[in-house]
């Protein structure tokens, strides 16, 4: 194998990794306000892809308005999900809330099944032109779209959490909800907001990756598993951690499949993940102290 192939492996690893990272940052948003893992995050991704398909391919709405409509709809679904299921629970435990999100995940898959059936849907690339060539390796336009969307989203989140009052309040909610409430923060409203934001980003991930990965009613949760891995490995709640870890996972998978064995690539990347967790129990970017403050 020459270096040209190496470059290609790294580039496709980055593409795979950016998909994981994009889904991973969605987990972080809800984690940041509630300390829970939202098992329905993959369904937001799936809905993003499938709703855009309906708007764009079936109703022939031009791409940009179709994407906007899709994101609005997915965001509303996220809000609805939180309001109807998590909101009414009094004094929920973390485990209770997680199980509720599992229930939502199954429910949303059921909804998607009855609307879109079992087919695999695909969308055209947003910019239909042949792949770019860099040093003999190729990279598709859609991968660039995913990267750009990912970078903008994470930059936005960074500024939101660091520099806005709302963002800081959301982080306070998860570290200590009682103290946050005592400080006058409306915890419940912020949780709703975090679901809206997570659904929006999940939908955006779905919209941008569907042309690469294709989409069907159960593909969201398969992809979410790797996104979850990226979020945990990076340190839950850390946007850049998720991106770093997602990229690391994607590139590892790609290199292992390219140089060692494609059959064991998932096992190897999971072993590396376990090893990193054992060495750094709070993920790459996480600190031990922060975790010990959290509930579960």
């Amino acid at each position: 194998m020459n270096w040209q192939n190496f470059l290609q492996l790294v580039l496709s690893g980055i593409t795979i990794g950016s998909i994981y990272a994009f889904i991973g940052i969605g987990f972080n948003i809800i984690y940041n306000t509630t300390s829970i893992i939202n098992f329905a995050q993959g369904e937001f991704v799936m809905l993003g892809g499938l709703i855009l398909y309906s708007f764009h391919q079936s109703f022939h709405i031009p791409l940009i308005p179709a994407i906007l409509l899709t994101l609005i709809l997915v965001t509303l679904i996220g809000i609805g999900m939180e309001r109807l299921t998590l909101h009414p629970v009094k004094n929920p435990t973390v485990l209770n809330m997680i199980i509720i999100t599992i229930g939502c995940s199954i429910f949303l898959k059921g909804v998607a099944l009855s609307i879109w059936g079992r087919e695999v849907y695909h969308l055209p690339f947003f910019f239909p032109r042949p792949p770019f060539r860099i040093g003999g390796a190729s990279i598709t336009t859609q991968s660039l779209v995913v990267w750009v969307a990912l970078i903008i989203s994470s930059a936005f989140l960074y500024f939101f959490y660091r520099f806005t009052l709302l963002g800081k309040a959301m982080r306070a909610c998860s570290v200590n909800p009682v103290a946050a409430r005592l400080m006058g923060i409306k915890v419940k409203s912020l949780i709703t907001l975090s679901f809206a934001l997570a659904a929006f980003l999940g939908g955006l991930a779905g919209v941008t990756i569907t042309p690469i990965s294709l989409m069907d009613y159960q593909r969201g949760s398969l992809l979410a598993l790797k996104g979850f891995a990226a979020a945990v490995l990076g340190g839950l709640g850390k946007e850049f951690g998720a991106i770093l870890a997602g990229m690391a996972l994607g590139i590892t998978e790609s290199l292992v499949a390219g140089y060692i064995s494609s059959g064991y690539k998932d096992a190897v990347s999971l072993l590396i993940l376990l090893f990193i967790l054992f060495v750094r129990p709070g993920g790459i970017m996480g600190s031990k102290e922060e975790i010990s403050l959290r509930e579960l």
């Binding site: 290609q8 492996l9 593909r219 494609s262």
Partner: peptide, 17 residues
Amino acid sequence: DETYAPQDTDMTPQLLR
């Protein structure tokens, strides 16, 4: 002789091999 898992989104590495 290459394989891939059902959830894989990109088979470029295998194809390169």
